[in-house]
Design a binder for these strands. Structure first.
Length: 424
RNA sequence: GUGGACGUAGCUCAAUUGGCAGAGCACCUGACUGUGGCUCAGGUGGUUGUGGGUUCGAGUCCCAUCGUCCACCCCA
């Protein structure tokens, strides 16, 4: 073999593309119901957009971006994340419009690129469907984003999705917490793993979700951010929980959910599902009240979610045992001999024009072989044209499942099948 | 980025101390000369991931490389 696909990227093959289309269609339909509008942003952006939005000291920016220079020397980066491009497009195209108070609701389905060591459910190109609700500080909007996500999982038959919920505070109260956290940990600094010693300086919040056993023991005594929120953040967090209660969406409070992107404020959440493997997170998101201002826009609160399609499909496969076989459809035109072949070609064309899927055996094999194909490839009907039919201007229409067949005038076929497709 | 397991037919897997690359399923053809599914018979299919090395001889041993998977890490 001459060429290989690059490491960590996948071909989505014909026999699995149906599941993708179904998941995408489900997300689109839900976004229509929740009144989110689709936006499509470019596959790459100025590198600085991601650096500023996601944060210099995050893993995504530090070591996972696909960054390159184009021929004019500009630094560009393949979409590393969905929110920053959406926010950029929202600002650049003035999607806010004249009504300064309007809630702008956007969604996207797009590939994401991150250079990481591949594993099952972790790829260098993966796909996310995401939703962003821009220009509302209301806690009920946080809940709507979560509600939309849970609705999506439910529609796909993924049960046992757990919603992990936390609040990471705001620029007002988080520094106080970080200060308290650092002073609490300081005496045991030497006992932290090397990575955590680095985090202590660059991104102390991430100390909370280190998996190292010794670090975890030290962290057990750490103050809980949830308890140190400023009145505004505390009130917001309580209201989010209350709205979730009202909507009967169960959740688990988890102080270790801090998210790996720096722009999050207040609400942070993650969805986990069984059956994915080591990492069972199928989606996550939160509020980012500071990001839009940071990107050069007016102060604008917002909240959003990103859902990993690859992982959703894995979870769906784990949750649903047997996947339903695709129903039979379309027509296979079986011809015998030269005269029949010409008639078959014409009929095939007519069927397609009439909106009925049709295929013909260009190899002109034996009737047996053609019938085997009609059966094996899942055709609903075989249209058989042999010597008799060719001479009489008829065809024999056979329904594969029932085995029932009748010979009818050729001219009746299209209207006959067109009608049956409608009801089928 | 760290540590480990594994790459043989379309799929799932065999192949003794280094000695003729195989089976099941799938696919194709025929039995059935105008009818699919069942049965039977026959058949196609491989540069053993790739490139080197050792050897009379390598799927097997050695080195490199690419890829997949697992545990870290990280994230969706």
């Amino acid at each position: 073999m001459l060429y290989h696909r690059p490491r960590g990227v996948n071909d989505i093959l014909p026999d699995e593309v149906g599941r993708w289309q179904q998941a995408e269609a489900t997300f689109r339909e839900l976004c229509r119901l929740y009144r989110y509008e689709e936006i499509r942003t470019p596959m790459f952006e100025e590198t600085d957009l991601f650096v500023r939005a996601v944060g210099k000291d995050t893993d995504i920016v530090g070591k996972e971006m696909y960054t390159f220079k184009d021929r004019s020397g500009r630094s560009l980066t393949l979409r590393a994340e969905g929110t920053a491009p959406t926010v950029r497009a929202y600002l650049e195209n003035n999607l806010q419009g004249q009504d300064r108070e309007r809630l702008v609701k956007l969604y996207y389905i797009a590939p994401i690129f991150r250079y990481d060591r591949p594993q099952a459910g972790r790829y260098r190109q993966h796909h996310q469907c995401g939703a962003e609700a821009i220009n509302s500080a209301e806690p009920e909007v946080d809940a709507e984003i979560i509600q939309l996500s849970m609705h999506f999982f439910r529609k796909l038959g993924i049960k046992d999705v757990t919603l992990l919920l936390n609040s990471v505070g705001c620029p007002g109260c988080r520094p106080d917490y970080v200060k308290a956290l650092k002073s609490q940990i300081a005496p045991q600094f030497e006992q932290l793993c090397r990575e955590c010693q680095r985090r202590y300086e660059t991104n102390p919040l991430r100390l909370l979700d280190c998996k190292n056993e010794q670090c975890r023991q030290i962290m057990e005594n750490a103050p809980v951010l949830r308890d140190m929120l400023c009145p505004d953040c505390a009130e917001h967090f309580a209201a989010v929980q209350q709205t979730l209660d009202t909507l009967e969406i169960p959740y688990t409070l988890d102080p270790t959910i801090v998210r790996g992107l720096d722009y999050y404020t207040k609400t942070a959440f993650e969805f986990v599902a069984p059956g994915i493997g080591a990492k069972d997170s199928i989606g996550g998101g939160g509020r980012y009240d500071g990001l839009i201002e940071q990107c050069g826009g007016p102060p604008t609160p917002a909240v959003g979610v990103g859902i990993g399609l690859e992982r959703v499909l894995i979870a769906q496969q784990a949750a649903t045992k047997a996947q339903p076989k695709a129903g039979r459809e379309a027509v296979f035109v079986v011809t015998l001999g030269e005269e029949a072949w010409v008639a078959g070609l014409k009929l095939t064309a007519q069927l397609r024009e009439a909106g009925v899927g049709a295929e013909i055996d260009y190899r002109k094999r034996s009737i047996r072989a053609q019938m085997r194909t009609a059966d094996g490839d899942g055709y609903r009907w075989a249209v058989i044209i042999g010597d008799d039919e060719a001479q009489q201007g008829t065809i024999t229409l056979r329904e594969m499942d029932s085995g029932e067949q009748e010979t009818i005038p050729r001219s009746e076929l299209v209207s006959r099948l067109g009608a049956e497709e409608e009801e089928g």
